[in-house]
């Protein structure tokens, strides 16, 4: 309908449309110009830290700052990995993240299946409760959690970081999975049920394979969240060999704070896994953000 209106305009007043197209081009040029300027500004932190991380001490503290390192000191990265057992920290982080992702994805999907497909008394009330828990700031339960894990003698182990992931995996992920399950046609499931499939098999053999995009999305979101987690490891991990990258980096800073080049090299090492994941699974990142945005 609107198409015909604008077509009619085209034949009526060609001059109007010609003027508009030059206008459009100007706007496009302005947009690109703004985008380029902004992206330069946004890149400064990355670029500056990359340059600093391969400089020597003189280069780091050079004034004015150098735009390009005089000589490349890639050994900074080796140094950063060796002066503190950074490899160990990376390994710890990977270990915790792997378990957390497994736990969150598995239990969030199972619970989401109950909310999306099963019929049980009180389901809808529980669903509202689930959504309400998203509002609760983690600080409220932080102290009791600490006391519980202290009593269980789990302090300075990875258990306080991992076990909660196996208990439902968080309201956001349950919600996302439920929304996704809701979009899967019921017919498939009904056919399977007629063939005598149990709920567990329907969940595992039908729903999960069909939900691989959603599973990928929440896996990626979960991995990033745990990789970046700072408060958890800070509270629960005490000994050095248990440190994850985030508190490892902080320790690095408090010891080698005046050696920014090592500091930045270490930071980049911890960013690498996330960066690789991002470029491998970019699609799912975007999906995750959009999905969480849609729930409003």
């Amino acid at each position: 309908m609107s198409q015909t209106v604008s077509n009619a305009f085209c034949t009526l007043r060609p001059s109007f449309w010609r003027r508009r197209s030059t206008h459009d081009r100007l706007w496009k040029i302005l947009t690109v110009f703004l985008l380029v300027v902004l992206s330069v500004i946004f890149s400064v932190p990355f670029y500056r830290s990359l340059v600093s991380s391969v400089s020597n001490l003189d280069g780091v503290y050079a004034s004015p700052p150098r735009l390009w390192p005089e000589e490349f000191h890639f050994e900074n990265y080796v140094k950063a990995l060796t002066i503190l057992p950074f490899g160990r920290f990376v390994y710890n982080s990977l270990f915790v993240c792997t378990w957390c992702v497994t736990g969150q994805v598995l239990t969030a999907s199972i619970v989401a299946y109950a909310f999306a497909r099963l019929r049980w008394v009180g389901r809808d009330v529980w669903f509202v409760v689930l959504l309400a828990t998203m509002m609760l700031p983690p600080q409220v339960t932080m102290i009791p959690h600490y006391i519980i894990f202290l009593k269980l003698d789990w302090i300075d182990t990875f258990k306080p970081l991992i076990v909660p992931s196996f208990l439902g995996g968080g309201a956001v992920f349950i919600f996302l999975m439920r929304q996704f399950f809701k979009t899967i046609p019921l017919e498939l499931e009904e056919a399977a049920r007629l063939d005598g499939c149990s709920n567990l098999r329907i969940f595992w053999d039908i729903m999960m394979p069909l939900s691989s995009p959603a599973v990928a999305t929440i896996s990626v979101m979960s991995f990033i969240a745990h990789w970046q987690d700072f408060m958890g490891p800070l509270i629960y991990l005490g000994s050095f060999e248990n440190y994850t990258v985030s508190i490892g980096l902080r320790m690095f800073q408090s010891i080698y704070g005046s050696f920014p080049h090592y500091m930045l090299a270490a930071s980049h090492i911890t960013l690498l896994p996330v960066l690789v994941l991002f470029f491998l699974a970019q699609k799912y990142f975007v999906q995750g953000i959009i999905l969480t945005g849609m729930k409003g």
Binding site: V111, Y113, V140, T141, P164, N199
Partner: peptide, 28 residues
């Protein structure tokens, strides 16, 4: 049986909800 299955599938979250949310909130 239906209710049982529903609660069974939701059990991980329900357990977490009572042990890691409601309980701690009351205690706090």
């Amino acid at each position: 049986q239906n209710n049982g299955q529903g609660y069974l599938f939701a059990a991980p979250w329900l357990l977490g909800f009572f042990c890691l949310t409601v309980g701690p909130m009351v205690f706090s």
